[in-house]
């Protein structure tokens, strides 16, 4: 029996909470994370003898930290060590929702894309070719209806198979214009040296080009905290909240 941690993110109004409720039933509580005063809903479910803790992140339109909620969601995906991140998309507004999914694919390796409200979409005559999306995006894409609880067994199975490594994810990375790509190439090795390989250097380069210094200061802070733990001999394992 092992314990795994899942981050659940998505746009507002995508039925994120409905999925969270469907997965965890009433086994939920709100807890703080990493000393922040921010409350996040957590829940637990068991599947094939493994225990999964799901963290319901605030619904956001992007992960560029324009607001407190976006910062919380982003920080958890990057620093909270989730074993997997589920991005939940609204089947009836796929275009805007995919925008967020593409951002997550740049940030982390193990991602499952979950297209919710598939029943609504069918009613509106929207047909989604998830196999094609899966090929294009390089991660599992699953159609569900959290309301009617369809597709959930498939989702649970995929989660466990991605975590165990049976399914390999190769998240699609957006290619930007030549100019931006050239800049990324310059920053990437510098970032690699300073931050290490734990966080995608490509993504960090992009964030830095976008002017997000605060993110780097946070990384330094977390590193310093981890070093202290090591030096004080409190534990030789990195803390759960530290950098992977």
């Amino acid at each position: 029996m092992s314990n795994f941690r899942i981050a659940l993110c998505g746009n507002p109004n995508t039925g994120k909470s409905t999925l969270f409720n469907a997965l965890t039933g009433l086994k939920q509580h709100t807890g703080n994370w990493a000393g922040k005063t921010v409350e996040m809903k957590k829940g637990v479910y068991t599947y094939k003898n493994d225990q999964y803790e799901i963290v319901d992140l605030p619904g956001t339109y992007s992960l560029y930290s324009n607001s407190l909620d976006e910062e919380i969601a982003r920080d958890f995906i990057v620093f909270g060590n989730p074993d997997i991140t589920i991005v939940i998309l609204d089947a009836t507004a796929l275009e805007r929702n995919l925008n967020l999914a593409l951002q997550v694919l740049e940030m982390t390796n193990r991602v499952i894309i979950c297209i919710n409200l598939i029943d609504e979409a069918e009613k509106l005559g929207i047909n989604i070719n998830e196999k094609l999306l899966m090929r294009r995006l390089g991660v599992p894409v699953i159609k569900i209806s959290a309301r009617n609880k369809t597709g959930i067994p498939m989702l649970l199975d995929t989660v466990s198979r991605v975590i165990s490594g049976v399914i390999q994810c190769t998240p699609f990375q957006i290619e930007y214009d030549e100019e931006t790509e050239r800049k990324i190439k310059i920053l990437e090795p510098m970032i690699d040296r300073i931050v290490g390989h734990d966080i995608s250097a490509r993504w960090l380069s992009l964030r830095l080009l976008d002017g997000d210094r605060q993110l780097f200061e946070q990384i330094e802070e977390r590193k310093a905290r981890n070093r202290e733990v090591l030096i004080n001999g409190a534990t030789f394992h990195k803390t759960k909240t530290g950098i992977k």
Binding site: Y61, S62, Y64, N66, E95, R96, N99
Partner: peptide
């Protein structure tokens, strides 16, 4: 500023 970013995020 932030409003521009927000608008971009929304499409």
């Amino acid at each position: 500023g932030i409003m521009r970013r927000r608008l971009l995020d929304l499409g």
